[in-house]
């Protein structure tokens, strides 16, 4: 690790393993995630539904237990401090202040019987106990305006705001205490295209003005192309490829990445159908595959070779800053 990179690194994740318990034993939803994030950098986490993106995001917030999962091993380090090793009270001090998150579904992430402004004030006062009600209200109004929500909306209930407005309010909650890392779980998936563009623009402005690192969870390569510097591709809880955005688009080295890219909706494709329908077979659930490569049953380059069924491919460096978990990464064509 170079000195420069070390100076700007804001977050480091090592070998993170997260499991849910189920009737048939533990369900490994995140299986060994490792990456680091630099200040001002945007990391995209992509993968099909159920690949473990939200579970990973929750674990990065130190909220795995609160959402019903369990961290088996690994570390999530901010400024040399492993959040997961901290007692809950100190963990709470980091949440919102060092690392903050905007949730996948803003409709359910606000309390329906509490005004958006009050919930925003609650956020502000969670880390600034000295702030009076009036100060908190003032800051809440400023925050709303900053993310493009009219300040008068402070007194409205969540149900009185549109989906786009609520998503913005959710982002206001995330940036309320100037965190150094923002995690955004599918921030634009539920929105129509014009609003999507506005929200992405908002993220760009916020990153430029705050220098925070952003982790954006999405299954939309459009979002990746627009906003992201580096991409982590997840499949069945595993990181199958990690590379900068140009390598991902031009020289993908994992058949799953290539398949995802091919299944991107082109303009002439009818909308309404599943975006990933072009990948044959159903996505493997976490832990469904016991030995071998989890992607092999849907893989178009495996051709039933033995090693794919017996050996789980390790994540190895295949190019400059590009990691892939495929035995035959050289055979992948974009």
């Amino acid at each position: 690790m170079s000195v420069v990179a070390a100076a700007t690194e804001v977050m480091r994740v090592r070998d993170l393993v997260v499991e849910y318990s189920s009737r048939d034993g533990p369900l490994r939803a995140v299986d060994g995630a490792s990456f680091e994030l630099a200040a001002g950098e945007t990391l995209g986490i992509v993968g099909e539904s159920g690949s473990g993106k939200t579970t990973l995001a929750m674990a990065l917030m130190g909220l795995a237990e609160a959402s019903g999962a369990k961290v088996r091993s690994g570390s999530v380090t901010f400024d040399g401090v492993d959040m997961l090793a901290l007692p809950s009270r100190r963990r709470r001090g980091l949440r919102g202040k060092v690392v903050a998150m905007s949730f996948q579904d803003p409709m359910t992430s606000f309390n329906p019987v509490w005004t958006v402004g009050s919930q925003l004030m609650e956020t502000i006062r969670a880390h600034d106990r000295q702030a009076t009600r009036a100060e908190a209200l003032d800051r809440a109004r400023n925050l709303l305006e900053r993310v493009g929500v009219p300040a008068e909306h402070v007194g409205l209930l969540p149900e009185q705001l549109s989906g786009g407005m609520l998503q913005r309010a959710m982002i206001a909650v995330a940036i309320a205490n100037q965190p150094r890392v923002i995690i955004a779980d599918e921030p634009v998936t539920a929105l129509d295209v014009t609003v999507q563009a506005q929200i992405l623009q908002l993220f760009r402005e916020l990153l430029a003005s705050t220098g925070a690192g952003l982790i954006i969870v999405t299954h939309d390569f459009g979002v990746v192309a627009e906003l992201v510097d580096r991409v982590l591709v997840m499949y069945a809880g595993k990181t199958v490829e990690l590379a900068d955005v140009n390598s991902i688009f031009h020289t993908p080295h994992h058949p799953y990445t290539a398949a995802l890219l091919r299944s991107r909706p082109k303009l002439e494709v009818t909308i309404g159908r599943s975006r990933l329908a072009a990948i044959p077979g159903a996505p493997a659930g976490p832990g469904e595959v016991s030995a071998g490569c989890p992607f092999r049953s849907r893989c178009q380059i495996s051709h039933g070779r033995d090693i794919c069924a017996t050996d789980d491919p390790p994540l190895v460096e295949v190019g400059k800053g590009q990691l892939s978990a495929c035995h035959f990464w050289k055979e992948v064509t974009p």
């Binding site: 609160a66 919102g96 903050a100 949730f103 606000f110 309390n111 919930q119 880390h127 995330a174």
Partner: peptide, 21 residues
């Protein structure tokens, strides 16, 4: 509820979650 999880995500204490949400 997800809003309780969201409150935890911005660092709300259990007391604030109880007396607020």
């Amino acid at each position: 509820a997800e809003y309780v999880l969201a409150a935890k995500a911005f660092g709300a204490s259990p007391i604030r979650i109880l007396l607020g949400h």
